[in-house]
Nucleic acid binder design. Sequence first.
DNA 1: TTCGGGACTGTACACCTGTCAAGTCGCATG
DNA 2: CATGCGACTTGACAGGTGTACAGTCCCGAA
Lengths: 193, 193
Amino acid sequence: MVANRGYNSTSAKTRLRLIEAASEILDEEGYPAFTARRIASRAGLKPQLVHYYFRSMEDLVVTVFKRSSANYFRLHDEALSSARPLHALWRLNCHIPEARRMLEYVALGKIYPALRAEMRASGESFRALQIEAIENVCARRGIANPPMSAASLAAMMSAVARSIVIENNVAMTVGHDEIHAFVEATIDQYDPG
Amino acid sequence: MVANRGYNSTSAKTRLRLIEAASEILDEEGYPAFTARRIASRAGLKPQLVHYYFRSMEDLVVTVFKRSSANYFRLHDEALSSARPLHALWRLNCHIPEARRMLEYVALGKIYPALRAEMRASGESFRALQIEAIENVCARRGIANPPMSAASLAAMMSAVARSIVIENNVAMTVGHDEIHAFVEATIDQYDPG
DNA sequence: TTCGGGACTGTACACCTGTCAAGTCGCATG
DNA sequence: CATGCGACTTGACAGGTGTACAGTCCCGAA
């Protein structure tokens, strides 16, 4: 007779190893390598264990994403609490490994609806936090007429950073330095150093 | 004995049907459906014909991309030759089907190096054309100190448009209207209506 | 010492993928 | 009429995918 199929054992060591391996695979080889067999082999485990600990690949990818997201939340929170929150946020947005990973999730989102839902939830809440942080900066610095609204600054930062990463993936470079400098200059108007 | 394997017959009707079908599949079902069998079935043809007309899936995807790209070149050229080139370009950038398609190519680029190379080439040349067009507008209108450099405006337009589409894919909306309005307002400073 | 249950393994299924080799058909040319 | 060749079909290969289910092991409680 079987089995609890440790779906819920959030602490099981082997389960964590799988999550870790899946995360590394996504970072190093991208979404096409996100398969049960590759992940298990990366973790030094039998492929069947993936379905012992996770109902399905969708379940796994959502779990991995949630972990990424929680991790990112810490960095994000740290950035927004720092002395110059907007610069810190911009630096975080431009952090290549994080941005690349998000791109893999975008691809996997085409396949797994539950992942899309999770991405939407976390994406919206990160953006809300950013908007709040930008408004706080404006209030603190007494900036009444900022160059752009808080929402559009937040959206622009993530759009530009994401785009640079996408284009780097195909070895494009034209305009990257310029747009990067422009965003930095814009941020400087809020949060001068 | 076989066969010329119509690799080069650029005009063969069946070959064109396959390219057309591949293009539609990419638009309607996305990169996961970009397989020889699905494409052939969509074209009402036997799957093996794909490899009769194309050396490999990579060969096919590159061919399809080149066609997209050539098509897009016409729209792009038309936009840049219009009375208000920057607004027309912005509208083109925001045209959802085109932007979504590009996203599928990004995903497929992870798998096919030759596609990446093609994307790089066409991407760089589109951007160069845009920069030139922006500089022309500045010269024509006598704008000596534009709000941002031509290169960064071009990069920003495509970054923002692309990002909105990515986020729409996961049903995110926060900040879209605002950033869209900001880009439009920026463009207005170059090319007022 | 028995027993139960959680952790893991072995084996397998059905399906899908890109790719290939050989054969067939029909038409146009000699 | 024969030949040849391009267009297409048949059939298959090797490998990959997610997923299922029964069996085995081991350890801790009774």
